[in-house]
């Protein structure tokens, strides 16, 4: 009886200890390493953008929070306004919490403040 109880203790202790690990909730791909690399060397921005594109294209409806918007922001930086707006709209639709910010981002792109002189 005592021996059996002692047998159980380590099992219980280990069980109690173990975090309810259910694996990562989303696929973040290469998000953090690519962002760190871009911060260290801005010329690797393309690599970061590719990492975001891969997450968006690989995750079947499980794109992590913020990623559509991060991808949209990179598109916006390149002047790809149409696709940037589409990504902001997807972020808003996937995550209602982002609605206020995404509306602001979209509105800013739809109403250019100053028409730039033609190059």
């Amino acid at each position: 009886m005592q021996k059996r109880l002692l047998c159980l203790l380590p099992v219980l202790a280990v069980t109690a200890c173990a975090a309810p690990s259910q694996g990562p909730k989303y696929n973040w791909g290469n998000y953090s390493p690519a962002l760190v690399a871009m911060d260290a060397d801005p010329s690797s921005a393309g690599n970061y953008q590719a990492a975001l594109a891969k997450i968006v294209n690989d995750s079947n409806g499980q794109v992590p929070p913020g990623i559509f918007a991060e991808y949209g922001y990179m598109l916006q930086q390149q002047g790809d306004t149409k696709d940037a707006i589409a990504m902001y709209a997807r972020e808003k639709s996937a995550w209602p919490e982002s609605g206020f910010l995404m509306d602001k981002m979209i509105a800013a792109l739809q109403t250019p403040a100053q028409p730039k002189p033609a190059a």
Partner: peptide, 14 residues
């Protein structure tokens, strides 16, 4: 962002 998102929160695009 990943650990906070995986924790179940909406995380704004950093």
């Amino acid at each position: 962002a990943p650990p906070l998102g995986n924790r179940g929160y909406y995380v704004f695009p950093v």
